[in-house]
């Protein structure tokens, strides 16, 4: 399926990227190239092949990752906010939403 400029624009919007006109010219053909390369998979018959979900080994799948629902120490408000570009009154501050 050929990829159009509109496809790239839509994908950029979905991914919260503000792609400029110049970038669109570069990325468009590159992404189209890569997509046509990965479409070689269509040549393979995968009827009745289970998809491999995740990367776990059999031992990894058997590993019990549940833990007791107990309160654990956490970073704390001050540390958690220390790297924020804009923090105020114990919160992350963002530009207005509406």
């Amino acid at each position: 399926m050929p990829i159009t400029k509109a496809d790239i624009e839509k994908v950029a919007q979905l991914a919260h990227l503000e792609i400029g006109a110049e970038e669109l010219e570069i990325f468009g053909p590159q992404i189209a190239d890569i997509v046509s390369y990965v479409e070689q998979l269509n040549a393979l018959d995968t009827t009745n092949v289970e998809p491999a979900l995740g990367g776990l080994t059999p031992e990894g799948e058997r590993t019990d990752s549940a833990r007791s629902d107990a309160v654990q120490p956490s970073l704390g408000q001050e540390t958690a906010l220390a790297e924020a570009p804009d923090a105020a009154a114990g919160h992350f501050r963002v530009p207005k939403v509406l």
Partner: peptide, 19 residues
Amino acid sequence: REEGFGPEVKRRIMLGTYV
């Protein structure tokens, strides 16, 4: 995200979003 990510990262994010 536009100013913070470089071209390869954007390319892969878009490709991943597309698929």
